[in-house]
Amino acid sequence: MYDGGKIIVGLIIFVGLVTFPILYNMGKPAAMPELKLNTPEIQQLQEKHCVESKEYMRANHMQLLNDWRDWAVRDGKRVYVNSEGKHFTISLQDTCMHCHSNKKEFCDRCHTYANVKPYCWSCHLAPKEKET
């Protein structure tokens, strides 16, 4: 192989760079984040139930929020009737965050873990939190 040595060294460096993030984090499993659901607002609820089931929300909250956004801002429809027939006002700030008043321990924990950075909060106001 012409210039074989150089090619092999180059390949090793390339593979090293590409696999660096995997190698670096090997053997250091990041703990699954635990979401806190015991805000004072939630504790006061008679029935501790989100707008949809826990499983549904965990998997699809981003899609639901996307739909909510378009319904409220674009279609002017602000009442969400869930699969059980219950009514909710469509509002991230006033409905979601009213109960989940702990953005840092609820939204951020999982988003940081999953390394997603939704830009909701550059406009929407997070509830005022007591520093813990």
């Binding site: 549904y56 319904w71 002017g76 429809k77 602000r78 009737v81 869930n82 699969s83 009514h87």
Partner: peptide, 15 residues
């Protein structure tokens, strides 16, 4: 399709 089954959207009656 992720839309929760049987959910729907309405305009507020007071609107």
């Amino acid at each position: 399709k992720t839309k929760a089954e049987a959910s729907q959207v309405l305009v507020d009656e007071k609107a």
